[in-house]
Amino acid sequence: MTFINLMAREINCKIVYYGPGLCGKTTNLQFIFDKTKPTSRGKMVSLATETDRTLFFDFLPLELGEIRGFKTRFHLYTVPGQVFYDASRKLILKGIDGAVFVADSQIARADANEESLDNLRVNLAEYGLSLDKIPYVIQYNKRDLPSVMSVEELRASLNPDGVPEFEAVASDGTGVFETLKAVARLVFLELKKSGA
């Protein structure tokens, strides 16, 4: 649901980072926040538990520059990955323009990734949406850790359709902006296609 303000000449898009608990969604946003000029971003709002687990969402507003005379604003959200927060996850998908699925590359998290991706599909369906219809990219995070799956294994289980995919180490920023740019590009292509 791209939000176009013809008076202020602004386009606003909502991107949601999804994935299992502790996969690194908040870390992605934190890195983007840290590396973006203060003039191009607003405050990062994190509704988190005392142990820094996302409780409801993280929110980061970004300004990317102009396109065809319109200011482009991206609102980045993360969902809480822990399984029992499903009701909250569903709410955050409302009005989504693009999705990033952050997978945890560790072998031990193989099932958690698949469950979370299934959960994303189910929750999108509640809004009449599906992953093959909306701008969507996937990030294989935590590539720096010792016992990780190969990218081929991750692809086979999580990305059979071959959407744009990126290896990342969100804690040092590797792959973070590549992922964001890729989903932003798809959102604009969608906007173009719909001839809004």
Binding site: I4, L6, I11, L64, G65, E66, I67, R68, G69, F70, T72, K181, A184, R185, F188, L189, L191, K192, S194, G195, A196
Partner: peptide, 20 residues
């Protein structure tokens, strides 16, 4: 035709967004 400006978006426009 709400905001038909976007029908003409080019790849270049999109790349330019990230060039800084």
């Amino acid at each position: 035709g709400g905001g038909s400006a976007f029908a003409e978006i080019t790849d270049e426009d999109i790349d330019n967004l990230f060039n800084d």
